[in-house]
Design a binder for these strands. Structure first.
Lengths: 124, 124
DNA sequence: ACGTATCTCCTACACCTGTAGGACATATGC
DNA sequence: GCATATGTCCTACAGGTGTAGGAGATACGT
């Protein structure tokens, strides 16, 4: 039911989810520089996210404060499933192998993954 | 250099990569039913993929035969990186954990992953 | 050779996305 | 109170995407 979040909108949502509650100016400030987006552009993204029901805009004196209405986990699951279907036709194993091969993982991350796999095996 | 492949186009590419060389009608035939796409719609996707340089169209008598000009592995890497950045800000570990938690994995897949992780650890 | 089935080519159109600009309301410093 | 800064609202516009339709060329059966 939450509508699709576009690529640029994800950037915005990532900062909102992290910082919880911010004004448009604060979002602009917190965004990784390098996109080269103007404040106005960021405002557009915010408005669209509100239209999509992903953000709530709360008028405080002076300016709106934006807050997420959709949990990050939920959006990640939707986007993840979509990616999984599109690119790997739902084969999670293939997906995991791909990222496992094509990515750097810290020793810690590897340990954590091994643990998770062990638990998964045990649960069978 | 290959342009972005849209969601519907991925479906098409998936069958082309699998079957190697097909006509528009064959692609249409091979596509998972349930999209409800008309032949004309599929044709549009094929044309656009040719424009993007992802497919080659080869005029045989009667009809064009389409073939991939870009290796699946390459497109998967590009799309994968983009997804990784967008949703997990580049944190592969988080991505892996997400799919590990949210997905069914066969015993075989788990074994294979464990093996890969072990190799990765060894290579440090 | 003629009708019929195929295929391709060109065209369309609405909605989404990235990218803002300008007008107008409002708060703030002095 | 007035100029200035800040924020919101509405508008725009080109390129990408999903979704085809119709016209015209071509091959095929008889």
């Amino acid at each position: 039911m939450p509508q699709k979040i576009s690529s640029a909108e994800w950037e915005v949502m990532n900062v909102v989810w992290e910082k919880q509650s911010l004004t448009a100016a604060e979002v602009f400030e917190a965004l990784p520089k390098g996109h080269g987006w103007k404040q106005k552009t960021v405002n557009t993204f915010l408005t669209r996210l509100v239209d999509k029901g992903v953000l709530a805009a709360d008028k405080q004196e002076k300016a709106y404060v934006y807050t997420a209405r959709v949990a990050r986990e939920k959006s990640v699951r939707i986007e993840g499933d979509s990616f999984l279907q599109r690119v790997f036709r739902g084969a999670t194993g293939d997906l995991m192998l791909h990222f496992c091969e094509n990515a750097e993982l810290s020793a810690d991350e590897i340990r954590e993954l091994e643990l998770l796999l062990k638990k998964k095996k045990a649960r069978k």
